[in-house]
Amino acid sequence: MKKICIALDTSPSAEKVAKIGFNYAQLLKSEVVLIHVVNHIGVYVNSYNPIMNYNGFLINRDIEIVESLEKEAIKFLESTANFLGEPSTEIKVLNGDPEHQILTFVEEYNADLLVIGTHSHSFLEDVLMGNIAAQIVKNAKTPILVIPVKG
């Protein structure tokens, strides 16, 4: 395995996912990229003309908010790379639907392995929101190491 992609969210369980994924990469002497998806940045952007004299609640700060979200995601990934002892680890911030963005990136990066975590959502959360990890496993063409994370 030459390339390992570790997908992280900002939950406390990300530490476990990062450590295990990074340990695999070290043992296999693989290149690593840490990725984080900012979910649907477009939701925060209001690029349309006022509708019925309504400008939207974010019209004046759209660009600042988007840039802020991306900057914080970069800081998170840089902090993770430092925590793992490899500050030069490649990082990538994506935006949009997490499942689609992760699967697309893994394919374009030609990753040999994707490392993701699962969360123990309630049944209702899984029904309403879907389980991102389950959808990734279902639709991936790349081998996946799924780290079970509870709580």
Rank of each mutant, 00 (worst) to 15 (best):
V106D: 00
L124W: 08
T104M: 15
E31R: 05
I6N: 02
A111M: 06
V127G: 06
Y24A: 04
G151D: 12
F76Q: 05
D126L: 08
H100K: 14
A7K: 03
A7F: 01
L69M: 03
L103G: 13
S120V: 14
N53W: 04
E125R: 09
V37A: 04
E15D: 05
E72H: 14
I63H: 12
K138A: 09
A81M: 00
I41D: 05
R61W: 05
N53Y: 08
K16T: 07
E107M: 10
I144D: 13
V38S: 02
P12V: 03
H100L: 13
L128S: 06
A140C: 10
T104Q: 11
G21S: 04
F105Q: 11
L94D: 11
S13H: 13
G42P: 05
S79C: 01
L69F: 11
I51G: 01
R61S: 05
A14E: 09
K141M: 11
V37S: 04
E99Y: 02
H119Y: 13
V38A: 00
S30H: 10
F57R: 12
E72G: 01
P148C: 09
L145Y: 10
A133Q: 07
Q101I: 12
C5S: 06
D97G: 09
E31Q: 07
A18T: 05
I41C: 08
A7G: 09
N139C: 07
L58R: 08
S120N: 13
I6R: 00
G130S: 03
A140G: 08
V149L: 13
E64Q: 07
V33L: 10
N39E: 15
V66L: 12
I91R: 02
E86A: 02
N49G: 11
A25Y: 07
V45G: 02
I4G: 04
I136K: 05
I91W: 10
N82E: 15
A14L: 07
A25G: 02
I91Y: 01
M129I: 14
E90W: 04
M52D: 05
N131G: 02
E31T: 00
T118Q: 00
L145K: 07
I91G: 02
P143D: 08
K75L: 07
V115T: 01
E86Y: 03
N39C: 04
E125I: 12
N139W: 07
V43T: 15
S122P: 09
P143W: 08
L8T: 03
V93H: 01
F22I: 02
V33H: 06
L27Q: 12
D62F: 00
L28K: 06
A111V: 06
